[in-house]
Nucleic acid binder design. Structure first.
Lengths: 245, 245
DNA sequence: CGCGGGGTTGACGCACATCAAAGAGAGTGG
DNA sequence: CCACTCTCTTTGATGTGCGTCAACCCCGCG
């Protein structure tokens, strides 16, 4: 059923998600298996492009052209307030979309940067041919993707505003873990690819506080953590901490 | 050009936006003035429905069926975390959309409640007939609306995380003011329809801190504020405070 | 005119930021 | 394989912004 779509065995540290677990798959699938009348021009769908650690795939203000999906590795998106320094507004794990914020205007509103060497799939919306019936379906899938982003952002706001550092970090670990799980990888035992200061910026804390609070969670026995390697010991207890009980 | 779309003169305290300044207009317009082949069934587009103060127009978890646009008055959207109390995640002023978070799943993820007696337009997406070509256009406008929401949420996160109470409130006042302006009403002199504790919940502060900080902004001479009535005195200085200079 | 809920103001404590410095990893070159 | 460096992480000491508790005030409403 999935001939041309790639499926590479998990390779330890930098595992790839399978296409069927990728957020872009609803679109990929449609483009290739639609009503058969569609002939995609070259270069509309670019698969498994390598990106090196620290590389920027699009910049805030540059013209919107593509959705991206993380195939392996991970990314952060950052915004630069007028007078201030970069703030991390999102992390993107394998199977997740990047670049959706640009779809309304003509430009991306944030900058996306690889946290490690990664593979990324790119769908060039600007070069997509007009294809009638299947375009309808394509659009409604895009609507669904965007709707999920809106709902996720709302949840995020609730999780960050008005929470203690312990609650934020417990919620953060749980969120990363469940996102990894959703894509068919192990959410019990994983690697945090981002630095403590990236986490700090994302959660609105100081990096020292992130460090201290992670140690605290370890002492409480709910997680095992050494450098970037995390193991969930008591997800339920963690959930309790995140919800403040 | 705009025969059936309503346009009512501004009436002091509870002014209506003109349709041409409404976020839903891109859709309304299309539905009525499209390619002429569209016959809308009754009850797809419900205009200027009255809502009383405190009334809920949809609830978190209830099935998604409609987009709403605020015609006059204002709304807040709230989420209830598993163990905790309601948190305000958004305010919706005349001309703005409500309910977009439900489009991806089958249910709304938050609850929308009127802050004052209001008028609201409802577009029942679940009852929208399948209409070929114009449906394409409809969808791409929905995509645009959702994309704006995503971008707005990102900006909001940046504005809230890691900012002092003074910065948050300065940014909040500026944001409300410019949103009022954008819809063709006066953003220089307006009424904050939400309570101090709603603002506090939205900004992640205590209501006492909101009160204190607003007084501070008044003493600094950048705004005039008495109860819910706000006048902008020095928008540039306010901008400076918001950006932390 | 009296009541009630939202708004303001003050006192105090705590959680987290900030500053500082030492420790641990990952990568580099000898 | 080992020294070296650079960056990230951890840990400690100290200060402060904001939350919390409590009292009072004021406006709107019946």
């Amino acid at each position: 059923m999935c001939l041309s779509r790639v499926s590479v065995p998990v390779s330890g540290r930098n595992a790839e998600v399978d296409c069927k677990n990728c957020g872009l798959d609803a679109l990929c699938e449609l483009l290739e298996y639609g009503d058969g009348t569609v002939e995609l021009p070259q270069g509309v769908l670019l698969r498994r492009q390598p990106v090196t650690r620290g590389e920027t795939i699009f910049q805030s203000g540059s013209p919107f052209c593509s959705f991206f999906a993380v195939k392996s590795g991970s990314f952060k998106t950052v915004m630069v307030p007028p007078h201030g320094q970069e703030k991390v507004i999102g992390f993107h794990l394998p199977g997740e979309m990047v670049g959706t914020d640009g779809v309304a205007g003509d430009a991306y509103t944030c900058t996306a940067r690889a946290l490690e060497s990664s593979l990324i799939c790119e769908l060039r919306l600007d070069q997509l041919p007009q294809v009638g019936a299947s375009k309808l379906e394509l659009q409604s899938r895009i609507i669904s993707i965007l709707g999920q982003e809106v709902a996720f952002s709302h949840k995020l706001n609730v999780a960050l505003i008005c929470q203690s550092s312990e609650q934020r970090l417990a919620a953060f670990i749980l969120s990363i873990s469940s996102r990894i799980n959703e894509r068919g990888l192990s959410g019990e035992d994983f690697r945090l690819s981002m630095s403590r200061s990236d986490i700090a910026s994302y959660l609105g804390l100081a990096s020292e506080t992130v460090s201290r609070t992670l140690m605290k969670l370890r002492k409480l026995g709910v997680i095992k953590i050494r450098n970037k390697h995390v193991q969930m010991l008591a997800p339920d207890a963690l959930e309790g901490l995140a919800n403040g009980v």
